[in-house]
């Protein structure tokens, strides 16, 4: 159970100004600009749900993910995940979550994938028996057997993403965060990733929180969609709600990407 209540987060960004004199004074007194990344955000996610978390760039998606995964401390509001506050009991909390950052690898570049996995086994202190069982299952479902002995640098993007996802699931987390997992992937890999995530959710009851710009990901994976813009939750509903709210001015329905574009424009959050 993930409970987020009235969470706000403001960043202070240093103002930069030109000129040597300005640079000198900035060493002693700095001017800051405040950016509200999250503004009174609340939602609840039940065990085993699959959520699509969407919004334009800079809407507050990654701030939310960072807060939920214990990387960032909010200014105000409360978050509990299975009764734990992510940023207070970091070590206990992160044992039960898995995070895939689509744009950053967690695998060691020059050595075979399996070696990275064995390090993860030791990092998460996964018991041997459980580790081999999980690895076996992931290997089968993601078709990794050929890849495990290959150094990461020799993998294609799609192969690497499959390996990344498996790496995040070796310790059988209850919650899985997927941050743009299909970015740059070819059609086959995209479908493979979607099928796997659906199955993982169904068979292990893993709660999945997915951020993406790919509407097909959302419609394939998420029954529930949370839309965030300018730091506020603007819509918490289903794909159909998006379709309806984003319908063309004439009222006729349109494809999902167009609906989202209409919606963003209408809500003025771009």
């Amino acid at each position: 159970m993930i409970r987020v209540e009235h969470v706000s987060k403001t960043y202070r960004v240093q103002k930069r100004s030109a000129g040597f004199a300005a640079a000198l004074t900035s060493l002693f007194s700095r001017e800051y600009e405040e950016i509200r990344a999250l503004n009174d955000v609340s939602f609840t996610i039940g065990d085993g749900e699959m959520i699509g978390y969407m919004g334009p760039n800079g809407a507050g998606k990654s701030s939310t993910i960072k807060i939920l995964s214990g990387i960032l401390t909010p200014d105000s509001g409360s978050v509990t995940i299975d009764g734990r506050v992510p940023w207070k009991n970091r070590i206990e909390h992160v044992k039960s979550i898995g995070v895939v950052f689509g744009q950053r690898s967690q695998l060691w570049w020059d050595i075979p994938v399996i070696d990275s996995y064995e390090l993860l086994r030791d990092i998460y202190a996964i018991p041997k028996a459980q580790y081999s069982k999980n690895l076996e299952e992931l290997t089968e479902l993601l078709a990794l057997s050929e890849l495990l002995k290959t150094p990461t640098r020799q993998l294609s993007l799609g192969q690497r993403m499959r390996c990344e996802i498996a790496a995040s699931l070796l310790h059988a987390p209850k919650v899985l965060f997927l941050d743009e997992p299909t970015i740059g992937l070819d059609a086959v890999s995209k479908i493979a990733v979607r099928e796997f995530v659906t199955r993982q959710n169904r068979e292990h009851g893993t709660t999945v929180i997915l951020t993406t710009h790919d509407m097909q990901d959302i419609s394939a994976l998420a029954k529930r969609v949370i839309l965030i813009g300018r730091g506020r939750i603007l819509l918490d509903g289903t794909i159909d709600d998006i379709r309806r709210e984003g319908a063309n001015p004439g009222g006729e329905t349109t494809d999902l990407d167009q609906a989202v574009a209409n919606l963003y424009r209408r809500l003025d959050i771009l």
Binding site: I71, I91, V94, V99, I123
Partner: peptide, 13 residues
Amino acid sequence: RRGEFDRILVRPR
């Protein structure tokens, strides 16, 4: 700079 410290924070060590 590369944001790798985030990864460190999501591991239980």
